[in-house]
């Protein structure tokens, strides 16, 4: 009886973001101009592939937001990683090593964020705002302010729409996104670390009272998130085939929007991986649908802005009812 009730509640809790996703998909599939193309497999695949990069970053940001923090440096971090991968390949590194360099660079930036936040006792907004500039600047410096060309390798096949071998069905990037979504969901819901991250976000003083080593947990949170941004940078390189230091300008706000639409609370202690993914897809389908309709760019921006505000308002209302 009890478990059924709580299960229903969970569904109701997800109804917000899920409802939004269903609404977006329904609207576009009813539009006569695009209804035949919108829901076909290849379009869905293409939307999914386009979502990989934002999704990887948003997974990490969910962890940060759950623990009561914020990260404005995610997109710059991604660009730095993207440039470093190209740079490493040009130095003659094998593709796998180059990819590892990109991921490690992301992890380092994340670690630095966490380290500065806990050691200097600064608010995450300030530290990551600074890091946003630092990482972007570093990326431009490494790339001498231009794109870095790199020879093609298997790295560039991670984001293709028709994968090789064909039994993969979708691009390796999508598989990576699914894999890390599962990993992060387990980390958040089924480990002591995850529970402590939630506790820090809900009330840091209580966490400390309960013996949680809050500084260590926070450093780990930012490092993990940085690693995911680094991986997203590798995916970006794969897609572009060049190291572009100006890539993903302003993407950090899309990433934050995805988490917030998915039910993450900027005051901490709330958020879920499933919700975040739904948030990512709401934005991706919306962009895709608007482009297919031939609606101008500014129209998309207005709609997404409205959705962010609507999603958070709905979330508030739901909480008040509880």
């Amino acid at each position: 009886m009890k478990s059924a009730g709580s299960g229903l509640k969970k569904i109701a809790g997800l109804a917000g973001p899920f409802g939004g996703l269903i609404l977006v998909i329904t609207i576009f599939s009813l539009m006569p101009e695009v209804s035949d193309r919108f829901l076909n497999l290849s379009n869905i695949k293409s939307v999914a592939t386009q979502s990989v990069i934002v999704a990887l970053c948003a997974l990490g940001l969910t962890l940060i937001i759950v623990s009561g923090g914020i990260d404005l440096s995610a997109a710059s971090n991604l660009a730095l990683s993207c440039v470093l991968v190209a740079y490493a390949i040009n130095l003659g590194a094998p593709p796998l090593l180059a990819a590892l360099v990109g991921v490690a660079a992301g992890g380092t930036v994340g670690f630095l964020n966490g380290f500065l936040i806990t050691r200097l006792r600064l608010v995450p907004f300030i530290v990551t705002l600074g890091m946003m500039g630092i990482a972007r600047g570093l990326a431009k410096w490494v790339a001498r302010n231009q794109k870095i060309d790199a020879p093609l390798s298997w790295l560039n096949e991670l984001m293709v729409r028709t994968p090789r071998p064909s039994w993969l069905l979708v691009s390796p990037g999508i598989w990576l996104m699914i894999l890390f979504s599962l990993v992060m969901a387990v980390l958040l819901r089924k480990t002591i670390f995850g529970r402590q991250a939630f506790a820090i976000g809900a009330n840091e003083l209580t966490a400390r009272l309960c013996g949680v080593r809050t500084d260590r947990v926070k450093v780990a949170v930012y490092t993990i998130s940085g690693l995911l941004c680094g991986l997203a940078g590798v995916m970006e390189f794969s897609r572009l085939t060049v190291g572009d230091p100006t890539v993903a300008m302003g993407l950090e706000l899309d990433i934050i929007a995805a988490v917030v639409i998915g039910g993450g609370s900027l005051s901490g202690g709330e958020g879920s991986i499933l919700g975040t993914l739904v948030g990512v897809f709401i934005m991706a389908f919306l962009r895709n649908g608007c482009t297919m309709m031939g609606w101008p760019n500014y129209f998309q921006e207005i709609i997404i802005g409205v959705i962010i505000i609507a999603a958070v308002t709905l979330d508030r209302l739901r909480h008040r009812q509880e």
């Binding site: 939630f198 009330n203 209580t206 202690g269």
Partner: peptide
């Protein structure tokens, strides 16, 4: 300080 009032009872009790 004593309780994370936005979390549930079980988490507060066992944290």
């Amino acid at each position: 300080e004593g309780l994370a009032v936005r979390m549930n009872l079980a988490d507060n009790l066992t944290l």
